[in-house]
Amino acid sequence: MSSSVAGPDCCGGLGNIDFGKVARWEQKTRQLSRAFRSPYLACYFLGSVILLLNVLRSHCFTQAMLSQPKMEGLDNPTAFCLGLMLLGVGTLFVLSSFFALGFTGTFLGDYFGILKEARVTTFPFNIMDNPMYWGSTANYLGWAILHASPTGLLLTVLVALVYMVAVLYEEPFTADIYRQKASRSHRRS
């Protein structure tokens, strides 16, 4: 594991881009699937690594906030309630996305050839694209506001920017693989 994942990822989510590269490499070579003798096991392994690094990132995010001074303008009951609401909405989007996609759908399974019958369009995907990323961003923003942390606000912006870059890479790929799948299914019928 490179220090670029263990270091900057703590504050920005750069692992999403790095793991996107790993997933594209897997999609082209199937090396992980061969090493684990199953695309599912390989996907579960990669997803577990991503999940553990997300826990580390959240811990580092919290430690960075707690080690910095508070922002007086955010240290009030109204801001605290706003932070709680953002955490609630963010958690709703993250959990409902996970339940709609499942583990392999959440953690790059499409790169391993593990596809749903069709692209998921139920809640929360019927409200917005990429609700997992935006829910996670809302969680970080809510957490930063709860702690009245200017550092947390800055790190939330960094997380959001990294997620936007990840979407630029993931979205065309996902659209293309489901377009190809629909085309293959249409030719068979």
Rank of each mutant, 00 (worst) to 15 (best):
S4W: 04
C10D: 10
C11I: 14
G13L: 08
G13H: 08
L14F: 15
G15H: 03
K28F: 03
K28H: 03
R30P: 06
L32T: 08
S33C: 11
R37N: 08
L41V: 07
L46M: 14
G47V: 03
S48D: 08
L52M: 10
C60S: 06
T62Y: 15
Q63R: 13
Q63S: 08
Q68I: 07
M71S: 14
N76K: 01
P77S: 14
C81E: 15
L82P: 08
L86D: 05
G88W: 09
V89M: 09
G90I: 02
T91G: 11
L95P: 01
F99K: 02
A100H: 03
A100W: 04
L101V: 04
G102F: 00
G102T: 04
F103R: 04
G105I: 04
G105T: 02
G109P: 09
D110V: 15
Y111F: 15
Y111T: 11
F112I: 07
F112P: 10
I114W: 04
L115A: 09
A118V: 10
R119F: 06
T122P: 01
M132I: 12
T137M: 03
A138H: 03
Y140G: 13
L141Q: 06
L141C: 11
G142L: 04
A148D: 02
L153I: 01
L154D: 03
L155E: 01
L155D: 02
L158F: 09
V159L: 00
L161W: 10
Y163P: 09
M164W: 15
V167F: 12
R179Q: 07
Q180H: 13
S183A: 13
S189M: 07
